[in-house]
Every structure is written in structure tokens, then in C-alpha cells.
Amino acid sequence: MRPRGPVFLARRSYRQRRMRDAARLLPVAGAFLFLLPILWAPAETEARDTAIDGAYLFVVWFVLIVTAALMARGLGRQEQETGAETEGRG
């Protein structure tokens, strides 16, 4: 028998747990993007593209900072609400 309607999930705490997952994944994504230039094999191209490479790195860097800032607000608010007993387990 198919269940009617979605299985109940506490929406709010579910979102909070996924927010923590995202906070843990952010440095992984950042590391991937920062290490990407290794694959560009710059030695083989003759084009002088250091300025563009630099711009790429700074843009990635800035996006990481903005994402971290947005997430830090959400995480900080959670920590105040949920208190010490549940944090860190999710």
C-alpha cells in the first residue's frame, strides 16, 4: 500500500541538520575549486594568462567567504535556540 502524503518530518530541525552538513561540505568544495588549477597544466600552454588565473582564484575565494558568512548566521542562530544538548550530534 502506498503511503498517502509525505512522511512526516520535523521540517525545521531537518533543515538545521542539512545546514550543518553544508557547513561541513563547504571546505571540501573550496579545496576542490582551489586545487582545480593543477589540472589546467599551464606549462603546456604558451598563453600568458596569469591575470585570469589570479582572478579565478580571487572570485572562488570571495564566493566561499560570502557563503560562509551566510551559513555562519544560520548556524549561530541555531546554536542559540537548540542549546548545548543537541548540537554536534546531527
Binding site: 557547513a23 571546505p27 571540501v28 573550496g30 566561499l64 567567504i65 548556524l75
Partner: peptide, 8 residues
């Protein structure tokens, strides 16, 4: 930067 954005 990676260590700090991964503070969690």
C-alpha cells in the same frame, strides 16, 4: 581559508 570556512 579552508580551515576557517570549515570551522564546524
Amino acid at each position: 581559508t579552508l580551515v576557517f570556512v570549515g570551522w564546524w
